[in-house]
Structure formats: structure tokens, C-alpha cells
């Protein structure tokens, strides 16, 4: 067992646990985006930063609990940092409900950066979902730095993809990347719009998330322009 102090309160937790788990044990809420209890911790969104006794800010989801550590989860510096991070997130995903809620909670009232709608915050949850839970390894990160994005090999529909829809299920900003059936470069290629385009047939076949598109109705069928999300575009590619 490891004993540490969170916001001045003593807490004991088993060896190897993270600061996030320790805080949760005390019922202290720390905002997270790239963390999911069923997947490995990644530490990418940095929203869960907390302040340590020596003044460093570290991500609670990845930092191991250590004996005698002093942690503050909502210090002024932490709150200021989170606000800036949320502002950055909103500037690339302005229409996400989840982010808008976070912004409201943290009193982020404006976005001072030029908005660029990426519909993806690159938290990597879908990548880990695909690899760790579905064992499919169909999608992953490509490029690096500001050109990083998530896709399949060569931007083509992947043989490894079983169209389970796990990536869509777990996406925190949702409505991501999916280009609907038939698009040549869809990430998983499986997602019919959540509202099926083939109501009569759908009832019989129950093909949603399963043998999607097999009967062909949805591919040919009527579709309103906004029933699927557009491509993630606008980033320069490395060639």
C-alpha cells in the first residue's frame, strides 16, 4: 500500500495505482478525455493534470502514486492550465457537445485561436480500443506533430477491420472521421449512420454494426446530406 495526500487528505492505495485512481477513491473528480478504465492509460490530452508538491504539473491518469506524495487537483495553476487546454480543444472541435460542456464547467467563454474543424482531438482512444480490446490493429496514428492523424494503412479500407464500430463507440468527441459506407478511405468503414437509412429492411435484418451494407440497401438508399460526417481534411500530408 502507498500512502499519499490529495488536497491535504490522506489516502492509501495499492502499489502501482495512478494518481487518478487515488483521487477517485476519495471521490475527487478530475476531468479526463483520453482515459478509459478498460484501456491502457495514454496521457495525451493532459486535461487531468494535477500539481505536485514540487510545483510540477503531471497527468494524473499516468503518474504512479508514490509514498508521501502531495497532490493538488484544483490549484489555481491547474485550473488555468485546464482552461487553456479546453480552449485549444475547442478550437479544433468546436461542435463537440462533450467539449462544450467541459468549457461551460471550466468557465471557458471564448476561443481566441482561429477555429479549424478537425472533428478529432487525437486522444487515441479509438486506436487503443481497436488494438487492445478488439485485437484488430486496423487503425493507428500516421505522420507526427501537427500533421498527425488517425487512419488505416494507406487510407484504404483495412482488411484487419472487422467493422465492430468500437472506435465510434468510444470516441469522446464523436461524429468523427466516419464517412459512411462506400467511402474508399473510411477509418473502419462500418458505420451506417446511427439512424439507419433502410428502416423497413433494417427491422428484418438487424444489420446495424454487423453485416452492414451487405444487402446493399443502405449503399444505394436515400441519404440526407447531413446523415454522415464529412471527411477529415485540410491537413498537409507527408509524402
Amino acid at each position: 500500500m502507498t500512502k499519499l495526500y490529495i488536497n491535504g487528505i490522506e489516502v492509501e492505495i495499492e502499489q502501482g495505482a495512478s494518481l487518478l485512481e487515488a483521487a477517485q477513491q476519495l471521490g475527487i473528480e478530475i476531468p479526463t478525455l483520453c482515459f478509459h478504465p478498460g484501456l491502457s492509460a495514454y496521457g495525451a490530452c493532459r486535461l487531468c493534470v494535477v500539481e505536485l508538491g514540487d510545483g510540477r504539473l503531471v497527468s494524473a491518469c499516468t503518474y504512479p502514486a508514490q509514498e508521501g506524495l502531495r497532490v493538488r487537483t484544483h490549484s489555481p495553476r491547474v485550473r488555468r492550465a485546464r482552461r487553456m487546454l479546453i480552449e485549444l480543444l475547442l478550437s479544433i472541435c468546436p461542435s463537440s457537445k462533450r467539449l462544450q460542456d467541459l468549457a461551460a464547467e471550466h468557465q471557458v467563454e471564448r476561443v481566441r485561436f482561429a477555429v479549424r474543424d478537425e472533428r478529432c482531438i487525437l486522444c487515441g482512444l479509438c486506436v487503443r480500443m481497436c488494438a487492445e480490446q478488439m485485437m484488430a490493429h486496423a487503425i493507428g496514428f500516421v505522420n507526427r506533430g501537427y500533421r498527425r492523424r488517425i487512419t488505416t494503412p494507406f487510407d484504404l479500407r483495412s482488411d484487419a477491420c472487422r467493422r465492430c464500430g468500437g472506435c465510434l463507440y468510444i470516441c469522446p468527441v464523436c461524429e468523427v472521421r466516419c464517412q459512411g459506407v462506400g467511402a474508399p478511405s473510411a477509418v473502419c468503414g462500418s458505420c451506417t449512420p446511427p439512424a439507419p437509412t433502410c428502416p423497413p429492411v433494417y427491422e428484418d435484418l438487424a444489420c446495424y454494426m454487423g453485416a452492414t451494407g451487405e444487402c446493399g440497401t443502405c449503399v444505394r438508399g436515400p441519404r440526407t446530406p447531413d446523415s454522415h460526417s464529412p471527411t477529415v481534411a485540410g491537413r498537409r500530408e507527408k509524402v
Binding site: 495514454y42 496521457g43 495525451a44 490530452c45 493532459r46 487553456m84 487546454l85 485549444l88 480543444l89 478550437s91 479544433i92 482531438i121 487525437l122 487515441g124 496514428f141 505522420n143 507526427r144 506533430g145 501537427y146 500533421r147 498527425r148
Partner: peptide, 8 residues
Amino acid sequence: GKCLPCRE
């Protein structure tokens, strides 16, 4: 490109 503050 892994973490938000550095990438973005």
C-alpha cells in the same frame, strides 16, 4: 504529436 499542448 501525442499530447495536446505540445502538438496543438
